[in-house]
Design a protein around this nucleic acid. Structure first.
Lengths: 200, 200
DNA sequence: CTGTTGACAGACCAACTGGTCTGATGTCTA
DNA sequence: TAGACATCAGACCAGTTGGTCTGTCAACAG
């Protein structure tokens, strides 16, 4: 029997399986064997597409997590005129989109930051970039809102943006620990109340 | 040469070294060998005091992290009459106490929550308890402040308390990722501003 | 049609790691 | 003081894991 080959798809399948593994077990807890089992591939395939475990981890950050964050946060905020309402809507959809099982797995970005940013400079640089981009997106939206008299002008948009990012990560972390959608919902509502205080 | 024995101290030394290891490398990344090297002990000593790696991890949570959090947060809040000022003071001392290297290692509690609460039920239960206690301490202080007309009565003290806890964790996580004391300082100031909006 | 190269399979390996087991020694008690 | 037990030392073991290497076959160029 002959098997059709599709190298690009194979690479994507490995990336996706590695993302799942990292999401659940962390990078150090990720096992090459698990990825092979999930994809049905052999080691030859994996080590043909990725030099080693570290390179695979870096690729997951760059090609999966970064992309996911950009599409989830950047595009809606760029399209919105009222950044506060847009953020509140994003938070609400966030709550609705996540089941209890997904909450328990936590935010992939937050997980990796806590695990790896102090251990590996390559991870640290890549994760930091996602934070910076994410925060800058919110800061730009807030600054635009200030120019349009939607957002209070006496706040520092960059500080507040970073606070929103870090708080959001904190909420997800707390919800992960409490294993409760109700907790996440209450936390998101409280954050939404805070966002309301930023309105001009 | 004879060597004096002090089992309680030996146990404490192991616990402390294990805490350091977990703080830097996480529980999965913690190596028994590193603890032995740090303490100068042999395996016989460690496995005499702790049944296995998991039991050692549990003991670190119960006897080191929980104790540390209780002494850092509970006692100052119980003693204070104005919870908002007390929390702001705690945040400030928090910033001043942490060097850049300590920030990079992150919050031991937050690290473990992100790594283990989805993987091991024993860790999850113990870490969740710390969150619950911490949040309850703040909620009690806020409720007392409401009775004394220091804190707004139109807020839900429990929701806000959990929000403060989760945000604090988020701030530390973001500072860890950004590797910057200045970022932590700005984030703490923004959180302090939020706390100010809770004043009656 | 054929040679070359990319894509993958899977056996194999070396290093690491948590854990065990036996023995030695201190400490405490009867 | 002598036996019992707690407290350790350290050699040893078995399972795991990331990574390598050779071989096979598809895809494509000429």
């Amino acid at each position: 029997m002959t098997t059709a080959r599709n190298p690009e798809q194979t690479r994507e399948r490995i990336l996706h399986a590695a993302f799942e593994e990292i999401h659940i077990h962390g990078f150090q807890g990720m096992r090459i064997e698990h990825i092979l089992a999930a994809t049905g591939l052999a080691k030859g395939a994996l080590y043909h597409h990725f030099e080693n475990k570290q390179a695979l981890g870096y690729a997951v950050v760059e090609e999966v997590i970064q992309e996911h964050h950009a599409s989830t946060w950047r595009e809606p905020l760029l399209a919105a005129t009222d950044p506060i309402t847009a953020l509140q809507t994003l938070l609400r959809s966030f709550t609705e989109r996540h089941s209890k099982e997904e909450i328990l797995r936590g935010c992939p970005l937050n997980n990796l930051v806590q695990e790896m940013s102090g251990l590996d400079e390559g991870f640290h640089q890549r994760l930091r970039q996602i934070y910076v981009d994410w925060s800058a997106t919110i800061a730009d939206a807030l600054a635009a809102g200030q120019r349009n008299n939607i957002v209070r002008t006496d706040i520092d948009s960059e500080s507040v943006a970073m606070f929103i990012v870090s708080s959001t990560q904190g909420l997800l972390g707390a919800a992960k620990c409490m294993q409760s959608t109700a907790t996440l919902q209450r936390l998101c509502n409280t954050l939404a109340d805070y966002l309301e205080t930023l309105r001009a």
